[in-house]
Design a protein around this nucleic acid. Structure first.
Lengths: 341, 341
DNA sequence: GTGCGACATGTTTGCGCAAGCATCATGACT
DNA sequence: AGTCATGATGCTTGCGCAAACATGTCGCAC
């Protein structure tokens, strides 16, 4: 349906068009959308009818510019390749959309130059809040974040010097807790599979926790480091092979992430290694991939979805001007004992 | 103009600030960013130095309004709860970011009212392109999409009446192909587990394909429908129980999605049912959850990541003014035979 | 040395909306 | 009857940038 007074060319609809049809000013249409309680009921009804008739969709870009708030919350993840962060994004999305925000997604890949490009692309959209699943490394990146002047939540860790707010847990403590839990299960010669890449800070922190636990127990360290930069099933399988070769005396092995543990577990089955009799295997994360498929793996459960939900709630609060109770939310972790250790 | 040259209040930086520092006009800064080849090298160097010194981040909201293009590509998924679409989003993200676009994420949940709210929130951002992983159902939603005047790709299916472009496969054909494949493996009394919810159109289409195959083979149908609206492991387990109860003669069962098949497979193990000897089990999707965990399931592989990558490529082309070769891209499917059937 | 074109840069304007204040009507209270 | 509070709506302006056009400045051909 073409509005009778439509100027030539099928221009996009503006508030003016709605206003004209409803017999009010543009500003009243704006009010009917943003603060409907300030518009008289009949007027509002006319405006809503006009919007419905025209299928009008307000231009939020223009609105963002004028109001100096975008209604966007940015989520920055390193990669989607592993679906590790999917539950966190899901939790964030739910919290954000419930409060009327829309999610802007950025994935940084793994290079530092990309990191800065990404950050500019994201911050240039003037999001009202930012959730990070990865730390940013370059000084400039940190400066840009701070200068953006919006609430920021870092997640999945407890950084020593947070940029702003935090929802996470201590990866060092969690790594230590896993090692101590294995000790508690009766294992005495505990090994650890850890990444070699500096980029996997969290994995290295878990390794650090393992080391502390070993030192506390007065036990020798048995470490296997990955070859490649990414933790895959294959790396896990290779790590098991290395372990049997280099630390044949080990009676249990914790891995810095479930994916590795799953690979190790499958390799152990292939080799006929009795799990957990000859070797206990534990993972980290309790990611969806392992449990449903019957691996029944002992692991450290991290409430990824809650991290996202809590991060979203904190951002929404801060955007509304409130100050969330704790600026650093330790979401903790939980050893889940299943049959692999 | 009210702005003196003093940024006394800590206003956000604008191009004017960069321009002043570099001794050029605002427009030249804009050009240095958007069409650097049109700016003299020394001038450009001065501008870039000024931007670096100030840590200037251009306001893409204002830019979007002025240029009437946002640089956003919207991805609309029904839910993140199951990570099914994660690879598709990853593929899209890669293609889009390589071309300088940023991803706007929307999840529609499962209600039709949410559907329209979501669409308004997304289209209001004036994305330059939209990828849908789910069909929109209300007439108004379809009208809004069409009226947005941007390229749209529907995915994971081949709709009878596409809104615009398509990257997907025929769920009917794929369902039929799976049934025929099981027949080819020697199974003769083939059952099918399908959703009951009207919202899972794809699952119902696969069921339709199964029915066709059965009719072609002159074989009776053996159907199990889910109780709940969502396909879970538990539903899969329950479906296996129903199957053994109601169709004890069945020698194979195909499920409309891997999650169900995984649940069925685990339940079969628990009950000591010999798979594939007594019963073959096949899934659909080849999702990451099953394979790594050692379920070794026969399934229908869908190249989810390619769907996203191809959708992104098509959108980018269309945004650039080109016409992608096929507007409907059939990405196909592939039976992957493993040990469960 | 004049003219013309190619390039580099500047000026003006408006994208569509919301903040802030102005205006107007109505009714309650003194 | 006069005053003022209250609520409803309108008017003007500017958010920060990019498109379109205008201007300036060279060099080169003749």
């Amino acid at each position: 349906m073409v509005n009778a007074k439509t100027p030539d060319g099928d221009r996009r609809l503006r508030m003016d068009d709605v206003a004209e049809l409803a017999g009010v000013s543009q500003m009243t249409v704006s009010r009917a959308l943003r603060t409907p309680e300030k518009v008289a009921p009949e007027t509002r009804a006319r405006i809503e009818a006009a919007m419905a008739q025209l299928d009008y969709v307000p231009d939020l870009v223009a609105g963002s510019l004028a109001a100096r708030r975008s209604g966007l919350i940015a989520a920055v993840v390193s990669t989607f390749e592993n679906a590790i962060f999917a539950p966190t994004i899901a939790g964030l999305t739910e919290a954000a959309e419930a409060a009327g925000f829309t999610i802007l997604l950025g994935s940084s890949g793994y290079s530092e130059t990309d990191e800065e490009r990404l950050l500019r692309a994201i911050l240039g959209r003037r999001p009202d809040g930012v959730m990070l699943t990865d730390a940013f490394h370059t000084p400039r990146a940190r400066r840009l974040l701070a200068a953006a002047g919006v609430p920021i939540v870092e997640t999945w860790d407890l950084p020593a010097e947070p940029v702003d707010m935090v929802v996470g847990f201590s990866n060092v403590d969690a790594g230590r807790a896993m090692a101590l839990a294995l000790h508690g299960f009766g294992y005495r010669r505990i090994a650890f599979v850890a990444p070699s890449s500096e980029r996997d800070r969290r994995g290295l922190k878990r390794l650090e926790g393992y080391r502390r636990a070993m030192d506390e127990l007065g036990a020798p360290r048995r470490e296997i480091r990955l070859h490649g930069p990414v933790a895959t099933l294959e790396e896990g399988a290779a790590a098991l092979a290395s372990l049997l070769d280099r630390h044949p005396g080990a009676d249990a092995v914790a891995c810095s992430v479930d994916t590795l543990a799953a690979g190790a577990l499958l390799e152990a089955r292939r080799r006929g290694v009795d799990v957990p009799g000859r070797l206990g295997i534990a993972g980290f994360g309790d990611f969806a991939l392992a449990q449903p498929a019957g691996l029944d793996m002992t692991t450290m459960r991290i409430a990824g979805r809650n991290i996202g939900a809590e991060a979203g709630a904190m951002l929404v609060k801060r955007i509304a001007g409130e100050t969330p109770d704790p600026a650093v939310f330790d979401i903790g972790y939980e050893v889940v004992r299943r049959s692999s250790a």
